[in-house]
Design a protein around this nucleic acid. Structure first.
Lengths: 239, 239
DNA sequence: CGACACCTTGAAGAGGTTCAAGAAATGTGG
DNA sequence: CCACATTTCTTGAACCTCTTCAAGGTGTCG
């Protein structure tokens, strides 16, 4: 079991700088290792948690790609986000000690399970962790403001352009190409997130392709002209 | 100055149960009184904070009504929420120690200024406060999920119905009528929040009025048939 | 290799926007 | 306190973007 313990350690994890506070002393780093109770694999298509389930833990994504979505009684479904390695999910569950959305793996994934009791306990002692937890939650709030702006005031082309730029930027921060990407989600899931129908997503991709802005081969996307995408999002301001 | 100190005390505030943790012992209650550094009046139309300003504090609304909105370089504007007495604003500023939205009073208001340093300090010692801060942030995340659902998948009538039901419910929790309300915001602000044009807001109000669901006199609204509003939001499920 | 899920494209239609004009309410200054 | 300016709200008509419905094509996985 020693091997397991070492495997689980945050202090050894190459994603640490993405999901954990940086600049900790050795003492605090060791305390952080108590955060992760276990690792948990999540098969593609299965859920990490579902709306209605009791909330116990936050999850740091180690590998894989997730979507989160909320569902209404009358069967409406809204994708609220796509999450990749180094990001934390489960924050929605804190307020009522019950999850309010579903987290579904879009590819085989593995997460670090961080019991929330323990997060609160340690963050009372490690100021950097406390601050970090607050920042993670605030960042999510700011992200959602951006989505509201997108959904409330942008047209289809602008939404998809903003979506692609956001994906590329996050992938680049993880060391991937800043021009090539493989979408892990369907057109329908993109459409749900962006408030448009899958046909509109497809048509908009085709238009970008005709205009030479991106190359589209099913889920393989090459950004040919990121500047043009930025101009689509932000028509007034010429970069 | 003693009078001031007494005035400021959370332990005497009748909004305490809305904005502060409940069920505290006397010792913890006294500690909470250190949270509020000052009160600050905000005149109608002026801002409590603006995007770009340094973040220092969260604000609990004592009296009045606010909107928060984000603005893009190219002049797009999106209302991200309406806040009333007992609610906390400023969470967006934590992540980058800088506000990312504007908070503007829609009527003369007064807020309790809670320096965030002090919140973090006290919440390290008062577990109930720590838990409460986490819940406030989580609640905001869940609220925004709801807005995303609204913006992403509802039609104009459904959006406005959901909006009215939400307002009424929050007002009722504050002891106001569950049928009468006075809108503090313009049609344009409602439209911005709901992702529709002010003309559409106006037309949708008129349609509700023709259908006998609500009475509309400018900003004075009377909910005649809340059940009907619920059916508009949730067409499948018959209540 | 065949079944199934996913994607693309076309054509018709609906919901919401845009533009425009006038009415009602609100605020301001004399 | 009243008159005028300004803001806000309502309503109509034409238009446009996105949706809906439909069909066929492409890719993927057991």
């Amino acid at each position: 079991m020693l091997k397991d313990t070492i495997n689980i350690a945050c202090s050894n994890c190459n994603l640490r700088e993405l999901c954990m506070p940086i600049g900790l002393g050795a003492d605090d780093l060791v305390r952080l290792d108590d955060l992760v109770a276990a690792r948990r694999p999540v098969k593609r298509g299965s859920s990490l948690f579902r709306a209605g389930e009791k909330f116990t833990s936050l999850y740091a994504i180690r590998v894989g790609f997730f979507k989160t979505c909320v569902t209404t009684e009358d069967g409406r479904d809204q994708v609220t986000g796509f999450q990749m390695a180094g990001e934390v999910i489960g924050l929605d569950g804190i307020v009522n000690e019950q999850h309010t959305c579903n987290a579904i793996a879009l590819e085989d994934a593995e997460v670090c399970v961080m019991p929330f009791d323990r997060i609160e306990e340690i963050s009372r002692e490690v100021v950097a962790l406390q601050r970090h937890v607050h920042k993670i939650m605030s960042r999510e709030i700011v992200r959602e403001h951006g989505v509201m702006l997108l959904l409330g005031s942008m047209r289809a082309e602008e939404r998809l352009a903003a979506f692609l730029l956001n994906l590329i930027q996050r992938l680049q921060a993880r060391g991937f190409s800043r021009s090539d990407l493989v979408l892990r989600m369907t057109r329908e899931e993109i459409g749900s997130y962006l408030g448009m129908k899958l046909e509109t997503v497809s048509r908009t991709f085709s238009r970008f392709s005709e205009d030479g802005i991106v190359e589209v081969n099913q889920r393989h996307i090459v950004i040919r002209d990121a500047e043009a995408l930025r101009r689509v999002v932000n028509p007034q301001v010429c970069h």
